[in-house]
Amino acid sequence: MTPYQLGPLLYEGKAKRIFQTDQPDLVAVEFKDDATAFNALKKAELKGKGILNCSISALLFEHLQRAGVPTHYLGVQGHHWMLVRPVRVIPIEVVIRNVAAGSLCKQMPIAAGTPLDPPLLDLYYKDDAYGDPLLSEARLERLSLVNGEQRRELEALARRVNAVLLDLFSGLGLQLVDFKLELGFTADGALVVADEISPDTCRLWDLDVVDAQERILDKDRFRQDLGGVIEAYGEVLKRVQGVIHGPSLYG
């Protein structure tokens, strides 16, 4: 295993802590048990959530990389630590919707559960102070977060991720309703998938369950006070582990 020393805390978010290491090309990410919703207005600590999200994210990153999708992922260490390449994260949250659900149904006259073909791709300005607002063309241009070529590359990469995950999850009896992505640039300018991909960032429904609440295997169980959050995340991990070996230890 490649040795490294943990350095100072670089950033602490709602669900993760990010640490510098003594290696310039290595960052350590600690997954926390904290659960938040509604821009952190609702909070709880769910024991075991960090371990589950770390494991699920690691396996999904490995699957994406095997499919040719570039990510910041390098491996795991322990149960809730992920080692990644440092990236300059673009302050744009990319949301891809395959099925209408959640906020979309409150903002548009689309019934929940309506298939969206082609999938709807939305961009949001990632800033809690402003409530992560939806970016129009004019707003995106005004903020100058990416140029035209970078935006096209960003959207193409997000759609590649969607295609790979749709195929994976459908084979596991899960419907990928929607999900959010964070992307960033590495030191050499490559665009990669960053952050995490887990039931915290994806809506996942069990295709074999008809009941609209019981089929939920994601963070909506916490948002809607349905209970069984850890059990739902555990079910997702079990299914993913059935087809993806790993995760790989760093080093």
Rank of each mutant, 00 (worst) to 15 (best):
Thr71Lys: 04
Pro70Thr: 15
Gly68Ala: 12
Pro70Ser: 15
His79Asp: 10
Ala67Tyr: 13
Val87Met: 01
Tyr73Leu: 10
Val89Gln: 09
His72Lys: 06
Asn98Thr: 13
His79Thr: 09
Val76Gln: 00
Pro70Ala: 15
Gly68Ser: 10
His80Lys: 13
Ala67Pro: 13
Val95Asp: 13
Trp81Pro: 11
His72Thr: 03
Gln77Ser: 08
Thr71Trp: 01
Gln77Ile: 09
Arg97Cys: 04
Glu93Pro: 07
Arg97Met: 05
Val87Asp: 00
Gly68Leu: 12
Val94Arg: 12
Met82His: 03
Trp81His: 11
Leu74Asn: 04
Asn98Met: 13
Gln77Pro: 00
Val95Phe: 07
Arg97Glu: 08
Arg66Gly: 13
Arg97Tyr: 03
His80Thr: 13
Ile90Tyr: 00
Pro91Asp: 14
Gly78Ile: 02
His72Ser: 06
Arg88Glu: 04
Arg88Lys: 06
Val84Ile: 08
Gly75Asn: 06
Leu83Asp: 14
Met82Thr: 04
Glu93Ala: 15
Ala67Arg: 15
Val69Phe: 10
Pro70Glu: 14
Leu83Gly: 12
Val89Tyr: 04
Gln65Asp: 07
His72Tyr: 04
Ile96Asn: 09
Arg66Thr: 15
Gln65Pro: 09
Arg66Phe: 14
Asn98Cys: 13
Gln65Ile: 12
Glu93Leu: 15
Gln77Thr: 07
Val89Ile: 12
His72Cys: 06
Trp81Glu: 12
Val87Tyr: 00
His79Ala: 10
Pro86Asn: 10
Ala67Phe: 13
Val94Trp: 07
His79Ser: 09
Val87Trp: 00
Arg97Phe: 02
Gly68Trp: 05
Ile90Cys: 02
Gly78Thr: 02
Gly68Arg: 05
His79Gln: 10
His80Gly: 11
Gly75Met: 04
Arg97Ser: 07
His72Asn: 07
Pro70Cys: 15
Arg97Pro: 04
Val87Asn: 01
Ile90Thr: 04
Gly68Phe: 09
Arg88Ala: 06
Pro70Lys: 15
Ile96Asp: 08
Val94Pro: 06
Val84Thr: 06
Val95Cys: 11
Arg85Cys: 08
Val94Ala: 11
Gly68Val: 12
Pro91Ser: 15
Asn98Asp: 10
Asn98Gly: 15
Gly78Lys: 03
Asn98Val: 14
Val99Met: 05
Arg85Ile: 06
Val84His: 03
Val89Gly: 07
His79Glu: 11
Ala67Asp: 13
Gly75Trp: 03
Leu74Asp: 02
His80Ile: 12
Ile92Gly: 01
Met82Glu: 03
Pro86Met: 11
Val89Ser: 09
Ile90Met: 01
Val76Asn: 00
Val76Asp: 00
Ala67Gln: 14
Val87Leu: 02
His72Glu: 05
Ile90Ser: 01
Ile92Thr: 03
Arg85Trp: 02
Ile96His: 07
His79Cys: 08
Arg97Val: 04
Val95Gln: 12
Leu83Cys: 12
Pro86His: 09
